[in-house]
Design a protein around this nucleic acid. Sequence first.
DNA 1: CGTATTGTTGAACGGCCGGTCAATTACTAT
DNA 2: ATAGTAATTGACCGGCCGTTCAACAATACG
Lengths: 213, 213
Amino acid sequence: MPSVTEPSDLPRWQRRPGERRREILNAAVAVFGEMGFASATLAEVALRSGVSAGTVAHYFGSKAELFEAALSDHFLEPMLESERLLAEHRGSFRELLQTLLRHQWARLTSPGTPDLVMVGLAKTQDVPDAGRTVCRAIGERSRQLLRAVLDGGVKSGEFRPMNTELTARVLSAGLAGLMMACHRNAAFDRAAPTGDAILEQHLELIDHAVRTS
Amino acid sequence: MPSVTEPSDLPRWQRRPGERRREILNAAVAVFGEMGFASATLAEVALRSGVSAGTVAHYFGSKAELFEAALSDHFLEPMLESERLLAEHRGSFRELLQTLLRHQWARLTSPGTPDLVMVGLAKTQDVPDAGRTVCRAIGERSRQLLRAVLDGGVKSGEFRPMNTELTARVLSAGLAGLMMACHRNAAFDRAAPTGDAILEQHLELIDHAVRTS
DNA sequence: CGTATTGTTGAACGGCCGGTCAATTACTAT
DNA sequence: ATAGTAATTGACCGGCCGTTCAACAATACG
């Protein structure tokens, strides 16, 4: 049994220019999330995506560019789904608000996301565009959706009059903070309640806070 | 005018074992906050605290130990003040809740703190004890204080019945999330409202959410 | 004033990692 | 087949930074 090296007739590597980019990007998301920007090495990204160090550089140029590409890929694209959700909804604004918040929670807590968010926020000092990406993706657009719902609810009388711009900012930031707290507590606080339980409590508080009393 | 070097009779350096530690710690808080853990260099810390590279290593051993010491110094000590605030308060629980949240907001937004929080959170992967420090300081103890206030308010009838443990977690995490969002928006979103305006909106929402309807 | 003590220095070491580039090898068109 | 092309490799370079350590100089003490 020739077990040392496969005497395969397969080539030692293949040319797959159409798929390399995505494979490298997926590995980069994982590595940056696990190790942070500075600790992450291009060699590790190369290893996980099954290519050599030079290939990573060939596709993305520099480490910083790879980082930004990874953030955009992970955050910007899934946001379109939320916007579709809002456009299609028929029903009360109270329901819509809860649905939207649940949906964003699912996005924020999906595997790899919490770490990437924190790394992206912390790295804003060095790589300004990276911070901008995260801010826009999990901040600005999310906030615009929430504000649209709040405006509708106020107009329909389901919600009490309020400054919807400020309120949308508070809700958006609160959800992100909750996500980070849950993620960290899961590692250190063994008595911590589940993320879902906390989310339910948060939604209930929000419902009381915005509806007409 | 002998301007090149001061012909001073002062020694070229002094022995001040009692003050070196604090000076290095202050510099470390600033440097880690501005540059993040990995990008921060011991040389920069040494420069800002007016000592040489070797002295930093002599006092703190390794970079990781210096980081943990800086976090503990910056977060753990000021927490005692909040606890005193709670013990001394006389008045309604609604007022106390607002006061406590304002006080914690002031702490969280004090210069250098937001960056340090984010760096500490992001670095949890590599330096577990660092993450633990941040979690305990801005999470656990803060939450216990909030919960005590909520329990009191529920018992007195000012607040509606609720799961105070979960609610305290939501409020604590929400405040931290708000702080980070404000800090980042200040850099990118020129139309962003002031942190104080957002805090006021947050407090008003909380008041509606917890009081008896 | 001389000696011991120890806080402090700064040069040097060694490892690590991002970026480059010429060589290599899988494809492709003719 | 065969030559052309471009995707991929992997060794290498250069710089950076954490850590060490022997020498040094400012105090403390007798």
